[in-house]
Simulated scan of single mutants.
Amino acid sequence: MTRGTRHEYDLQTDVLATIVATTPVTKKHAALLTAFATRTDWRAARYVMTRDIYSDWPARVIDGEGREIAPDYRAWIDAQLAEHGSVSAVVDAHRESGYWLTEIRPLLHYFVHDRGGAQDNFAQFAVWEEQEYVERAVFPSDPRWGLPDVNELRRASGNGTEERIERRTLGEPRYALQEATDMQRFVALAGATWHARRQAEGDRRIVERDLATGQDRVLTVRELWPGYDRQRWPGRRFFDDWTDSSAGHAGERACARWTFNTSDYTEPGGGRHLNFVPQWAHTRKIAALKDTHRLNAYGLYGRLNQFDERIGMPFAWYFYGLHGNLVKSGQMERVLEAAEAGLIVLPECDYAVLRRWQQDPYGF
């Protein structure tokens, strides 16, 4: 989602953003959870997980005394390029400036307020933790070794010839609200948008030619694709499968085990696409299931049950299989085949979910 864009499912407000931004970063996010509990409607918000996969980004330009030259590096460098006309001219103009680049080390924390009931009935909050630091000069210390190109300069990616110092943090880490999402509204809107688009695509007519006779016939996409109208948006299926499986029957909540990286994109022609990618929230190191082709069906199912024990919930392997990194679709298919052959016993609810997936596969 784009920060600042308001949507039907967007819970972000200026007040909420201010509460997050003015709350100090503390151990285990205790202060932020207290702020949610005492200053917002999301009193039951809890921490779920942290994503530490994002690259550092450029922040400010400062001089050797730490005085701010520009609050936004990218805007400043664009202005310098516009004024001087080229990278080499910008470097020449500031050769003796002694300017330093500050950067942001980002972490993205996820919090959830679970309303209970339906598995998608929760609010999700994604909050940046940003730590500013300085460790390198803006421009190469010796241009004879080469200059960055325009794109490298704009990205502040450098070319390794900048003067460097030991990394020094600047100020305290701070929070910034990335997004606040009513997932039930998001899922409903995404499902309806997906269905409307699919209905329109299903009505599209295609001319099919019989190469033997040379005769043409006109068919709709729906007529060419068996089971076309049975398909549903994968995000809706994720929550329904959770509800119907032994995970849901055991009282496990999807929002406590996974977070959801949402996207909302509108094509230039007007077509809107809403999706999410589930992100597991386990913190233990979990190895992918490898070399299971050497195991018989019973051995494979035993490995999957061990996987569930490490995750701490039943039928976890199925949902990880939808993601595809740790459990593969081929392993899921083998379990179904073994269950139908009577080689293993699956809970009836899990068999029904797995069978439904095999008839109409989906994943993320």
Results as ranks from 00 to 15, higher is better:
75 A>H: 07
191 G>V: 01
157 S>I: 06
260 F>N: 05
226 P>K: 12
74 R>T: 15
274 L>F: 07
53 I>M: 08
169 T>F: 02
224 L>M: 02
252 E>N: 01
35 A>G: 00
337 E>Q: 15
133 Y>E: 03
311 I>L: 00
146 G>N: 02
230 R>G: 14
156 A>N: 03
168 R>H: 10
50 T>L: 15
207 V>T: 06
138 V>R: 03
234 P>L: 01
43 R>N: 09
338 A>E: 15
205 R>E: 14
314 P>S: 01
292 T>E: 15
110 Y>L: 11
339 A>H: 07
220 T>E: 07
343 L>E: 15
336 L>G: 07
192 A>Q: 09
127 V>E: 02
115 R>K: 12
336 L>E: 06
53 I>L: 07
155 R>M: 11
325 N>V: 07
42 W>S: 06
289 L>V: 11
213 T>Q: 10
363 G>C: 14
282 H>F: 06
316 A>V: 01
95 R>Y: 03
259 T>A: 14
341 A>L: 13
54 Y>G: 15
120 D>R: 10
206 I>W: 05
348 E>C: 06
1 M>R: 08
270 G>T: 09
162 E>S: 10
6 R>G: 11
322 L>M: 09
260 F>C: 10
310 R>I: 01
8 E>H: 12
132 E>N: 08
220 T>N: 03
211 L>S: 06
249 H>T: 11
323 H>R: 07
234 P>M: 01
93 A>M: 05
24 P>C: 07
121 N>D: 15
36 F>T: 05
172 E>Y: 01
359 Q>A: 15
330 G>D: 13
335 V>T: 00
199 Q>N: 10
24 P>I: 03
260 F>G: 08
261 N>Y: 14
206 I>E: 12
95 R>K: 09
20 V>I: 15
64 G>F: 01
32 L>H: 03
83 E>C: 14
